[in-house]
Design a protein around this nucleic acid. Structure first.
Lengths: 339, 339
DNA sequence: TTGTAAGCGTTATCAG
DNA sequence: CTGATAACGCTTACAA
């Protein structure tokens, strides 16, 4: 049988359904005792308000959509955890869409969210293709990008990011300061804005340390842990192999670390490694990974807050939010190994 | 302005809204050319069907709720990834609820999902409190538990699990076979059914190997990585410390591994460690972790399939699904270290 | 082949 | 204080 509705309660209480509606929303327009009676009855009958019907007339679903590449990525999982928590605190539900970076799935996700009439969308997908962007824009709800800066940025699309350039700078400067002269960068494909910014920080730090920027030391990879391992042979095959590597993210760095150990390299003596993200397990690999910590909790919270603020005030101008990353020095960068 | 509705299209096309509805659902009751015209118009006007309104009349939301303790747990993230993927393939959306094991949040999650009228709920929460159970049961939609067996199991609640007992057995028998005589078990609090089953497998393997079952060798912990580290001193403080440890999950095992290395133990020589889950990073810690792999992809897919099958056939009897775990031998259990 | 009308479960307006 | 009534956007008999 279908769930009990406001009408069922009305019938049971011998009042009209509008009175029940008022009583359940604790309106002062209902006599105290009828209100109490109705509320008790509703409870007894196991009433659960239908959010769909309510949203239809209220014009809001109290739901946000979250689009990610993969929830199995530990950094993304951390951010989503924070998003879900913040959303819950504000009385919002979260619809999760994982795209696996497949463009057609990203588009399908956006269309589904649009149909479900979510009040806002948070995208932690890094790469915003032109096609995808177009679909996003026709969505008439606030969109907040995490660690992604859309070039065609519209009135309605904002971003909260870590300061990727600064993070890349911190990581690279740290390695330079330890005395490394040849520092590689393991990159993502260049259509990621976050990758480009990290790489820019890398370049600036090299320059700042009086080191040349050598394109041959920049290798692209997929950002997953296996690809970090695959990158090692390429680096070692260079005429002058690097003594240190800054990786786009921790997963890559961990893959690289692992491959290096398997190849018999001494870490960090033979190769110093710095990652980006500070995923929960970063300090548990060996050697423990030096990395640039992203404030994932803060990023998730801010993304939710911004989404809801945007919903409230469609007209106001907002600024993108950029949070500082923090260099966490652990053993993979060779504390004391080059004194 | 509000999104374009079926009425707007009707007006633009000079037909009634029901004709539009039919045309958009590709009904044969509409003349081919009007249908084409309406569909083109809908596309041009950027029409997106309102899933709420549709669900109200259709009686289904094509949405499932997923309740987890924490999406930051790598094993859960893997399962959720599979769930989202399978759900998407069936045209279902996923509402994610993270409870952080807080009972009031689990209850809030269930109530929210009920209000949103999801078509089914998948719970990967391990511990099903009595209170929570009660709320779950008043939900009149299919509920599928992952790795959890509700004692009070009702007609309508099913489970898909790994064979926890067998997994615990495999892990422990492996250690016994390597020659270990004192094997500890790092457990979860005992209200987790999966924990009890793994522990049962542990006990059986000990018995099978002619080893005594010593309660002092069973230590509870929180299941998070920090608690794995905290458990080490307790084990070492025992009159006869264990030479091997089987951990409830990989996170605990990794914490333990890390603490042991920091304490200067040789791994796996001084302490062999086996985990459970086979999280993606299990082979990247050091030493690489021997563990019982759960078929997370299969579990997620089966959970979705079961949920939807249950929805279709409310009457039929289903069986709980139990999948085999697989022992993955890596270095943390000391391959060749005790020959 | 198309239009009219009812209904899904709410909230909100307007009389009483 | 309470009850009709309309409205939200859709699907689906039932009529024409």
């Amino acid at each position: 049988m279908s769930p009990v509705s406001i009408k069922d309660i009305a019938q049971a209480a011998g009042v009209s359904h509008s009175t029940v509606s008022r009583a359940l929303s604790d309106s002062p327009l209902v006599k105290a005792e009828t209100k109490a009676r109705i509320q008790r009855l509703a409870h007894e009958m196991g009433y659960s308000p239908d959010a769909r019907a309510r949203s239809l007339v209220m014009g809001q679903t109290r739901t946000v959509g979250v689009v990610v590449t993969s929830i199995a990525d530990p950094f993304i999982a951390s951010v989503v955890q924070a998003i879900e928590s913040a959303a819950h605190d504000q009385g919002y539900a979260v619809i999760l869409c994982s795209s696996n970076s497949a463009p057609e799935r990203e588009i399908a996700a956006v269309e589904m969210l649009q149909s479900k009439r979510v009040d806002g969308v948070i995208v932690a997908s890094s790469r915003i293709g032109a096609l995808y962007q177009e679909h996003l824009e026709r969505l008439s709800v606030p969109i907040v990008l995490i660690n992604s800066h859309s070039k065609y940025s519209e009135h309605y699309t904002y971003a909260v990011s870590v300061d990727n350039r600064q993070g890349g700078y911190l990581a690279t400067a740290h390695l330079a300061q330890l005395g490394h002269r040849r520092i590689a960068y393991v990159a993502r494909p260049s259509d990621h804005s976050s990758n480009l910014e990290r790489q820019e920080g890398y370049r600036q730090a090299l320059t700042g340390a009086g080191l040349p920027y050598a394109p041959s030391l920049v290798t692209p990879c997929s950002g997953r842990v296996e690809s970090g391992a695959q990158v090692l042979p390429q680096l070692l095959a260079l005429p002058e192999p690097p003594s240190a590597v800054f990786c786009y993210n921790d997963l890559t760095a961990i893959g690289l670390l692992h491959a290096a150990r398997e190849a018999g390299l001494t870490l960090p003596g033979d190769l110093a490694v710095v990652g980006f993200d500070d995923i929960p397990l970063a300090s548990y690999v060996c050697p423990p990974l030096t990395t640039v910590a992203q404030p994932h909790g803060e990023m998730g919270r801010q993304a939710v807050q911004m989404t809801l603020a945007l919903k409230q005030a469609r007209d106001e101008q907002f600024s993108n939010i950029v949070l500082a990353g923090q260099l966490i020095i652990r053993e993979s960068s060779g504390v004391g190994s080059r004194e």
